[in-house]
Computed example of a mutant assay.
Amino acid sequence: MSVGNRKSQKTATVYRMVMDQHVCPYGLKTNDLLRRNGFKVEDHWLTSREETDAFKSEHQVETTPQTFIEGQRIGGYDDLRRHLGKPVPVKGATSYKPVIALFSMTLLMALAASFAIYGNPFTVRAAEWFIAFSMAILALLKLQNVESFATMFLNYDLLAKRWVPYSYIYPFAEGFAGILMIAGILTWLSVPVALFIGIVGAVSVFKAVYFDRRELKCACVGGSSNVPLGFVSLTENLMMIAMAIWMALDALGIGVSHPV
């Protein structure tokens, strides 16, 4: 770096907690964000609870880290992101990111498995695995907290409203069918399970969103998700229906044969 660039480099001062038993993760993120945006960081450690409390009292703030730029207090990590024009996640806001990440990973997994077995990622089996992997991982997310999933699911599923135990059975059934479809075994069992839960789910979502015009959160990726109910959940159910029909036809010798 030239002398002129060193003189013109922006400087920021950060006060953050660095203790034997705790290093503030937001302090690390703050320093990284500043450096990536061209700042030279003067890093001040608050190494004890007493020192941290004294700093908060002096500056009348409730949290650390705190960033100062040109003598002006910017605030915490979210305040710094706003100051630099970066997006700040809104707590509780709806987002499709979890679903995009999930389907991207299951697609790549299916392509990788197809390549490993057949030497070609683009096979009929890869398409089947994509749906089956998606079903299994969606079930896994629901099973992380079945109670929370069931509570959200009861908001819109027609069968669960009439028979509450179905809200607890659903993620197990979805995962079970997905695993059988990945293995390509017991088609006589996986097909009716996937077809049943897919049809009930699709009808329930369509009624809640497109007929009743309700604005709900989808339980498709677990009970703590902020994914809006609608297209994503409907797609999940339609995928299960399509997979069930496809595998039934294949079992009858009507579908496209798999590569060998």
Rank of each mutant, 00 (worst) to 15 (best):
H59N: 13
M109C: 13
G230I: 06
V193T: 12
C218V: 00
A177W: 06
R213S: 13
F68R: 07
K161I: 00
N120Y: 00
Q72A: 14
Y77Q: 05
W129N: 04
Y15I: 01
F211H: 12
T13G: 00
L158T: 09
G198R: 11
M239E: 09
A173Q: 08
W163Q: 01
A194E: 11
L229K: 07
D43S: 03
M152R: 12
N226Q: 10
L84W: 09
I131R: 05
F149E: 02
E174P: 06
W163G: 03
M240S: 15
W129D: 02
F130T: 03
D32G: 00
N5H: 10
M181N: 14
I100H: 01
L186H: 12
T64G: 03
A242I: 12
P25Y: 02
A208W: 08
T11R: 14
V90F: 01
V256K: 09
F130K: 04
H258Q: 12
S148R: 13
G71D: 08
M1R: 11
R81E: 06
T235Y: 10
A183R: 12
V41M: 02
G198W: 07
A93S: 15
R213K: 15
K97F: 12
L159Y: 13
K40D: 14
E236Y: 11
S95E: 05
I169F: 15
I179Y: 12
F130Y: 14
A160D: 07
N37S: 11
I197Y: 10
